[in-house]
Design a protein around this nucleic acid. Sequence first.
DNA 1: CTTGGCACTCGGAGATTGCGAGTGCCAAGG
DNA 2: CCTTGGCACTCGCAATCTCCGAGTGCCAAG
Lengths: 347, 347
Amino acid sequence: MSEDRRLLVLRAIVQDYVQTSEPVGSKALVDRHALGVSAATVRNDMAILEEEGLIHAPHTSSGRVPTDAGYRVFVDRLSAIKPLSAGERRAISQFLAGAVDLDDVVDRTVRLLASLTRQVAVVQYPSLTRSTVRHIELVPVGGSHVMVVLIVNTGRVEQRVVDTGRQLLTPEGERLVTAMRDRLNDVASGMPFAAAAAELRRLTEVSDESDRQPMAAVVTAFEEALVEQREERVVLAGQANLARAGADFSRSIGPILEALEEHVILLRLLGQLGDDPELVNVRIGHENPVSGLQSTSLVSVGYGSGGERLASLGVVGPTRMDYPVTMATVRAVARYVTQILDDNRTS
Amino acid sequence: MSEDRRLLVLRAIVQDYVQTSEPVGSKALVDRHALGVSAATVRNDMAILEEEGLIHAPHTSSGRVPTDAGYRVFVDRLSAIKPLSAGERRAISQFLAGAVDLDDVVDRTVRLLASLTRQVAVVQYPSLTRSTVRHIELVPVGGSHVMVVLIVNTGRVEQRVVDTGRQLLTPEGERLVTAMRDRLNDVASGMPFAAAAAELRRLTEVSDESDRQPMAAVVTAFEEALVEQREERVVLAGQANLARAGADFSRSIGPILEALEEHVILLRLLGQLGDDPELVNVRIGHENPVSGLQSTSLVSVGYGSGGERLASLGVVGPTRMDYPVTMATVRAVARYVTQILDDNRTS
DNA sequence: CTTGGCACTCGGAGATTGCGAGTGCCAAGG
DNA sequence: CCTTGGCACTCGCAATCTCCGAGTGCCAAG
């Protein structure tokens, strides 16, 4: 059946092009792959593939290169995620296991991902929205200010200084702080973050008249931490890999670096995931809404402690990338990170 | 006097080359600068400057380009740091004032520096070593583990989980935690970090037999935070600016990006400052020990709350940069950051 | 539908040329 | 002794040209 063979030809083209980074011609194809047909036949197939928009000839008389649509078909129908070797898995797990806290986990993850895939790695911090409150601490600083420290089940710590409008260095002030701390923790400990915020807000409204104002200030800080853009942070590594693969990018790498510095936009991209949290997401070339990244592909997947998807991680690389291997690596790293966060949660 | 004019010629060459990025010839020089002598005279001077190794002709018959040594003379003897306009100062101060916590201060600083100088900005986190302890908090998590949260006078917060080897969820355990917390804070609050570590270590040795082990675990965490490499963190921004100035780098920008990803090495560089904390440090081209950065210059300066130098910040750019403006910008940003940290300290 | 054959197309590498900015040197003038 | 105009010379660079061959599209035969 002709359709089947055409797809085999497409797969061969993708594989060869990924490996050699040069347009692949009919002759080279039949040499390197046992297709069982002649070069002329392959040429006919390639003509049809080109009509379908899956491949493209850079110049009138040169080999073919996959289009974004061609890669899409390859990823969806012509390849399987290639499992990692036991050694690779062990290396990942050991490297991540050495982390001392959340910052370190994220830092190690992004570096690991960059060096394994030789591409730009992107890791989003676990979101507060889906996390739960482990503990709230109040530390008086200066006369009437207090530092609110939020400790989250993922190991993340947020802090913020607020003015309570009350003198806190007196014995009475200390009692106030202690009372607030106890009340906050009684209410919020173990609660999902968003629910805790709502609950605490209600609490301020039924407070004694005297305590209402300091309490409201603290709760406001709490809410701010929830909505603030800093909540959504992203860390990159491996930008140097862009330079190594420089020839792959039509333009220079400048616009790509610029796009990667727009963390807000990156986060929006990472947030647009499919429904299945386990599924690896691939966005190829022009499928990408960000103009600077339309010569790149983004391979991403959600990760998160305890079955809930807290955030995403992935890599950005040339559309001409080894998708099966990259997808496998990204997925494996996400799984191990999830595992580490689970361990931390119970420790 | 001949020597004087030669230096004027050098200065003119540097200025023109920085502006046009093309080798500058004798004719162009006398046109653009009122040197009061003819092109031939300038040519004689240039020949001497070349003998002295301060300028260099890329090709037998082309204009001259400053060497690293030439830039060095320019920076040391031929230029003054150009003060920023009031508007620029106001912009810096307003942008930094919006920061909500230390992470945000650092993040804003590095982005600001990158966009002001259009170069790669580098900001080191304030070191723990020179900071003082504001508060130590212990939060029980899980059966026998406790999270040690260190709050530092710069606003920085470090956390770490340790196993106390004691069941803490009992009333007795809670008393133990409370007692330890009080004792830790009594001793360490307000102390410089290193001194506090030593003091606490001694404290564990005179503890009751029963409390010694949990206390030692906590103090160990404290000490670890002090020595750990994570203590020394550095944040970058503006890598895209490298691509914009791409033509300035002999090689591609790949090696530079790679060098910048070696945070440990960057930190060592930033650490090698002159004695005067107020002085802007410039390391030009090959003066730089890191091979990947020998086509760049590093302009750095220390910053720090309350007169003590806590850390450094700076920019990395092509040796062909506008030193007076860059130096002014780096210094101004460092001053405002210092100011912000001072404000935080007292708030 | 497949295959070998064949004329044709272009991109890219390499060689060639001409131009002009810029130099070094020299001899004359302050 | 320094400065200056003049002048021959040097190369890098860009533009032009040529040539080569991989690869194509199409056709007619199997």
